[in-house]
């Protein structure tokens, strides 16, 4: 009979940790849903902005923008250390063709490829990679037998986290003071590659990889520092 003392509390302690873990997963999922919607919207709106503003061909040229957006975020994690969180990478892409009523003869729409990694934007011109004489269509609009295309290739991520935590508890007959501090230093490296492919009119499935290179390859550092002090007085 003695063994059954506090059994319900003990059971709650066992299952409570499972319940808290489920709550944590639900909250993380909620945050991810919100952020994913945000990134998708932002990618499209920024693509639209650049397509309108960067009308480099001049009035009557229009422009076409392929926008890729990558964001590194750190989410709250109920099952890890104080404020450590877990790293998440969100990405979205959008393509916008800003067509003014008509494109002037002998004027070409600006074709831009923009990569945005954590707010750092890099703009590339499609024509720097695919010259006019290697494009799919010639000046008369006729499809070439052999042509080249530019595509966004592999995207690779590396992340290195340095996490420090200090916890101090000071007890006196009058009160307990708890002091917690944490610092997370994250070095996130992002590599966005491009591929130049040779394609054939006769066989749409056939393609040769001509060149691979980096559109973005850089390391960004993020630091999150938190501290909190609370006192329990008796």
């Amino acid at each position: 009979m003695n063994n059954k003392k506090g059994q319900a509390v003990l059971e709650m302690a066992v299952f409570g940790s499972i319940i808290l873990f489920i709550f944590g997963v639900l909250l993380s999922q909620l945050q991810r849903l919100n952020d994913q919607q945000y990134v998708q919207m932002e990618a499209f709106r920024r693509a639209l902005y650049h397509a309108c503003r960067d009308n480099t061909g001049g009035s009557g040229a229009g422009s076409s923008v392929q926008y890729s957006m990558i964001q590194n975020r750190r989410y709250a994690d109920t099952s890890s250390n104080f404020r450590k969180g877990t790293a998440q990478i969100l990405s979205a892409g959008a393509s916008v063709s800003w067509a003014v009523p008509e494109i002037k003869k002998d004027t070409e729409a600006a074709r831009l490829v923009i990569v945005n990694v954590n707010g750092e934007e890099k703009t590339f011109k499609y024509r720097d990679y695919i010259p006019k004489d290697k494009d799919r269509y010639d000046k008369e609009g006729k499809e070439r037998d052999i042509y080249e295309v530019f595509t966004i290739g592999n995207t690779n991520f590396w992340s290195q986290l340095s996490f420090q935590e200090k916890s101090k508890k000071k007890e006196s007959p009058a009160q307990i003071t708890t002091d917690r501090w944490s610092k997370a230093e994250d070095a996130a490296t992002t590599q966005v590659q491009y591929d130049i492919l040779r394609k054939y009119k006769a066989d749409v499935n056939k393609e040769d990889l001509l060149k691979t290179g980096d559109l973005y390859n850089d390391t960004q550092n993020f630091t999150n520092e938190h501290s909190s002090v609370w006192e329990t007085a008796f």
Binding site: R45, R46, R53
Partner: peptide, 20 residues
């Protein structure tokens, strides 16, 4: 986002990005 889409997608050179 939907309400501001028409304005953002109208072809005027004076368009400025409103985000968020």
């Amino acid at each position: 986002y939907n309400n501001s889409r028409v304005e953002a997608g109208t072809a005027i050179d004076s368009y400025t990005l409103k985000w968020p």
